[in-house]
Simulated assay, not measured.
Amino acid sequence: MEYVYAALLLHAAGKEITEDAVKAVLSAAGVEVDEARVKALVAALEGVNIDEAIENAAMPVAAAAPAAAAAPAAEEKKEEEKKEEKKDDTAAAAAGLAALFG
């Protein structure tokens, strides 16, 4: 993941993403550099519009946010229903015990 972060940092700084630049960022961060991973990353990013890729990656997250906000409300309803069921079960059990002794 550090390799991708290094590339994103270079992109955000307006620098060209080259093997030497990625190695320099990783070395400055104290990461042991794997030459093969650096070459693979730079080759994979060649011709990729990073801004567009970031925008497309952020879209599903933004669309999922309203659904995630609704999830706690649904959980609260389930908890309330469980509490009501427990009360009913307790009352029924008490009535059954009373019949044994009554």
Rank of each mutant, 00 (worst) to 15 (best):
M1G: 11
E2T: 08
E2M: 02
Y3K: 05
Y3C: 06
V4A: 11
Y5D: 02
A6G: 02
A7N: 01
L8A: 04
L9N: 14
L9D: 15
H11P: 06
A12M: 13
A13K: 12
G14K: 02
I17Y: 01
T18N: 04
E19F: 06
D20K: 15
A21T: 02
V22M: 03
V22D: 09
K23I: 00
A24M: 09
A24V: 01
A24G: 04
V25D: 03
V25E: 05
A28Q: 12
A29R: 07
E32Y: 00
E32Q: 11
E32I: 05
D34M: 10
R37T: 12
V38A: 00
V38P: 05
A40K: 14
V42G: 02
V42N: 01
A43K: 14
A43T: 10
A43Q: 08
L45M: 10
L45D: 04
E46C: 03
E46M: 04
E46L: 03
G47A: 09
I50T: 10
I50P: 07
D51M: 08
E52D: 15
A53P: 01
A53G: 03
E55S: 11
E55V: 14
N56H: 07
A58S: 08
V61N: 09
A68E: 10
A68G: 07
A68Q: 12
A69S: 06
A70W: 07
A71D: 04
A71S: 02
P72T: 03
P72E: 04
A73T: 12
A73S: 10
A73V: 13
A74T: 10
E75I: 15
E76M: 12
K77Y: 13
K78E: 10
K78M: 10
E79M: 11
E80H: 09
E81M: 10
K82L: 14
K82A: 15
K83W: 07
E84K: 12
K86P: 02
K86I: 15
D89K: 15
T90H: 09
A92W: 01
A93W: 05
A94E: 11
A95T: 06
A95W: 01
A99E: 15
L100M: 13
